[in-house]
Simulated scan of single mutants.
Amino acid sequence: MTTAFFPGSFDPMTFGHLSILRQALAAFDEVVVGIGVHAAKTPMFSFEMRADLIRASLKVDGGSADIAIVSFDGLVVEAAANAQASVLVRGLRDGTDLNYEMQMAGMNGAMRPDITTVFLPASPETRPITATLVRQIAKMGGDVSPFVPEPVLAALRGKLA
Rank of each mutant, 00 (worst) to 15 (best):
T2L: 13
T2F: 09
T3A: 10
T3P: 02
F5G: 05
F5R: 07
P7A: 06
G8V: 02
S9G: 11
P12F: 10
M13Y: 03
T14W: 04
G16A: 14
H17M: 07
H17N: 10
H17L: 06
H17G: 01
H17Q: 03
S19F: 00
I20Q: 08
I20R: 07
L21F: 02
L25N: 02
A26F: 02
A26W: 11
E30Q: 14
V33Q: 05
V33C: 12
V33M: 06
G34Y: 01
G34W: 09
G34C: 11
I35P: 04
V37I: 15
H38W: 09
H38F: 13
A40V: 09
K41I: 04
K41S: 02
T42H: 12
T42K: 15
T42Q: 15
T42L: 10
T42F: 00
T42E: 15
P43Q: 02
M44Y: 08
F45P: 04
S46R: 03
S46K: 01
S46G: 08
F47L: 15
F47C: 06
E48F: 03
M49A: 12
M49P: 00
R50H: 09
A51K: 07
I54S: 06
S57C: 06
S64D: 15
A65R: 03
A65M: 07
I67D: 08
A68I: 05
A68L: 10
A68T: 14
I69S: 06
V70N: 01
V70A: 09
S71H: 10
F72Q: 04
D73Q: 13
G74P: 05
G74A: 09
G74C: 08
V76I: 13
V77N: 06
V77E: 09
E78L: 12
A79W: 11
A79M: 07
A81F: 03
N82A: 15
A83S: 14
A83K: 10
Q84L: 10
S86L: 05
V87T: 14
V87D: 03
V89W: 13
R90G: 06
G91C: 08
G91H: 13
L92K: 03
T96S: 14
L98P: 00
L98H: 12
N99W: 02
N99A: 15
N99M: 12
M102R: 15
N108S: 09
N108G: 04
N108V: 12
A110H: 09
M111T: 00
P113S: 07
P113D: 12
T117A: 08
V118Y: 13
V118R: 15
F119W: 10
L120G: 02
L120D: 09
L120A: 01
L120W: 04
L120T: 01
P121R: 01
A122E: 11
P124V: 09
P124M: 13
P124S: 11
E125M: 08
T126L: 06
R127D: 00
P128Q: 11
T130V: 03
A131N: 03
T132M: 04
T132G: 13
V134Y: 04
R135H: 08
M140L: 15
G141S: 02
G141D: 07
G142I: 06
D143S: 01
D143W: 12
V144P: 05
S145V: 00
P146G: 04
P146H: 04
F147E: 06
V148K: 07
V148S: 11
P151Y: 05
P151Q: 07
V152M: 08
L153I: 03
A154F: 01
A155Y: 04
G158T: 00
G158Y: 00
K159A: 13
